[in-house]
Design a protein around this nucleic acid. Structure first.
Lengths: 342, 342
DNA sequence: TCTTCATGCGCAAACGTTTGTTCACAAAAT
DNA sequence: ATTTTGTGAACAAACGTTTGCGCATGAAGA
């Protein structure tokens, strides 16, 4: 039976060479250090044979290079973020990086701790989809020199690199469409109120009304987070009004699901009794009770670009001065959940 | 401005103490090494003040303790696995562990490489939802001493710890229900044919027929992976037969979605033209065109238990001799996608 | 024959921790 | 006055790598 080799030392021993030489060959520095061709081949061969893989801890300690990125997501069970996470993982690994996954559960304190956790893990960079209401901890991390890019819930007012959807235009498109279908009394169920996607989508909502010369009723802008529960609750409340809206603009796929649940429970029908349009397309969107009209986001592009930019920051110190702000087009997918009225 | 402290050395310097003493205090070994109470307080205070966090690489190298677990998932964009991943992340972190997330994309070769990657990262244990067709690489890793637990796609025939659903009973329940609703010609669209969940669910399918004294038509057991595409394609094929089935048993939520898509495209209705029951409940299941009857799995329990068991393996060498095999009850959720016939 | 040079490889320090052992000092015991 | 004891803290090695520098050896040039 072959000797167990877990060390570079072990490998060096079976080869009768020094650790130094083995390391050099394995790191492709043979020419630079004039290692003979035969030695080179022997080392490579033995490394394969004994399945030697360098210890990433030791390597990371020595080189300050851990081949690891950190990812902080507010809720991985939300398919929107699961999709982003998947594309990030794929892109990262294809570039030789592993991913430490953290789920902040939309908790600000947890988010702070997770950043520190990632730092102590010596990740080379961080991709974060933050809660989106506060950025002190994030900018502080960024300013300390940690390569970092924000996805989805960005902060355009400060110098943090981000990549997100064009939520403003998405909001305009959604509401324009509703208005073009004759709707005037349109409720908007928000995500986290101060988070950028919500702010922008609401801004689009307002802008669409203004463009069409219709006054906005602020009392129809309700809700406070991206969850199904919020969608459900707010819909029930909206329909407890004497004159409920004719349409709802749900600011996330989860909210949309909550709206449907409430509508369902009340024995009402989409779009007969209420029209619905929801942000974020999902595989099931087309197969819901009423196929849903949605605003699609380029999730996999978002993840991929986030990694590419982050990697540029990591490898190119000069590039780090550029603060990349990137906005991805959204796409209105018309189905059956909006009724033409009047 | 305060001096920057990234080192234990830096911290020791500002304190005028040796590295040794600082380390001991921070690791709670003050009594054992007779560090005075005042020194103790000074150290703790300074550590907080300078926000010192030990370098996990150095610590891991020295202690062979990385506080890191590896997770390999075949497809994180599949909400079934996203849910499991979420509960795993939560449970792991609550126990002080971080998670390296890997997505094997149902690719056997990738899966092998990912295991080696995790090993070189010196994770303390691995949770893997494998492709489920081959286990050589997995058992080899396990035998080498790496704590490991398999979730979902297990291999009961070999000595690998696992935790999965009672897919056999789930299959029986589903088909029993269909039969009780008068169905006899029931198609089964499989996941990966040799993977355990599929094998067991199909076994349940057969058993239910036998129990009811009905012969099984093997030609109705079709399909070859857990994807939406598979569900779609097989449904189209099934309906190209002269005498199509009256019901379909879809062996995953993704397959179920594919079935719906095909039915939809053909202008047919669930359950009028075809009944459907699908494995794995999802938040949207209740709100589909026809609210879907499903077999629910205890996903978060699965994740949580996987971590708990893995941690026992890690911390308790004795426990490692026990090979835990755990099976979680499934639950039939009846909705409207199955019609009573005859 | 003696110096110079190219070739091929190894020594040892360093990365940031932890920890067995040792050391210095003062107080107590002899 | 000397030894013992107790107290508090530091020295240095080790974890598995990488790498600047140095050290042999033999061939070529003087």
């Amino acid at each position: 039976m072959k000797k167990e080799v877990n060390d570079i030392r072990g490998l060096a021993e079976v080869l009768g060479l020094s650790i130094t030489t083995v390391s050099r060959v394995l790191n492709g520095k043979s020419i630079r250090y004039r290692i003979s061709a035969t030695t080179q081949q022997r080392v490579v061969q033995a490394a394969k044979e004994y399945n030697y893989k360098p210890n990433k801890l030791a390597r990371g300690l020595k080189l300050s290079k851990t081949d690891t990125l950190g990812l902080i997501i507010p809720d991985i069970s939300n398919p929107f973020f699961a999709d982003i996470a998947q594309s990030i993982e794929k892109e990262a690994r294809s570039k030789g990086y592993s991913l430490i996954l953290c789920d902040s559960r939309e908790d600000h304190l947890v988010e702070k701790e997770l950043i520190e956790l990632l730092i102590s893990h010596k990740v080379e960079g961080i991709i974060i989809a933050p809660m989106g209401t506060d950025y002190k901890h994030i900018i502080q991390t960024y300013d300390s020199g940690m390569p970092l890019v924000v996805v989805d819930r960005c902060f355009p007012e400060i110098g943090l690199p981000f990549i997100t959807s064009d939520n403003y235009q998405g909001g305009i498109d959604a509401v324009n469409y509703l208005i073009s279908m004759g709707h005037r009394k349109i409720a908007c169920i928000q995500g986290i109120p101060k988070s950028r996607p919500t702010v922008e989508r609401v801004r689009g909502y307002n802008e669409a009304f203004r463009n069409n010369g219709i006054p906005v009723d602020d009392s129809l802008i309700v809700g406070n987070d991206y969850s199904t529960e919020n969608g459900y609750k707010q819909t029930r409340i909206l329909f407890s009004m004497e004159d409920p809206p004719t349409a709802i603009f749900a600011l996330s796929n989860l909210i949309g699901l909550g709206v449907i649940k409430a509508i369902d429970e009340m024995g009402l029908k989409i779009p007969d009794n209420i029209s619905l349009i929801s942000f974020d397309e999902q595989p099931y969107s087309a197969f819901l009770g009423t196929p849903m009209t949605t605003i699609d986001q380029k999730k996999s592009e978002m993840g991929q670009l986030a990694v590419d930019i982050l990697l540029k920051y990591i490898t190119n110190k000069e590039y780090r001065k550029k603060v990349v702000h990137m906005t991805l087009k959204t796409n209105l997918i018309v189905r059956d959940s909006v009724k033409k009225i009047n």
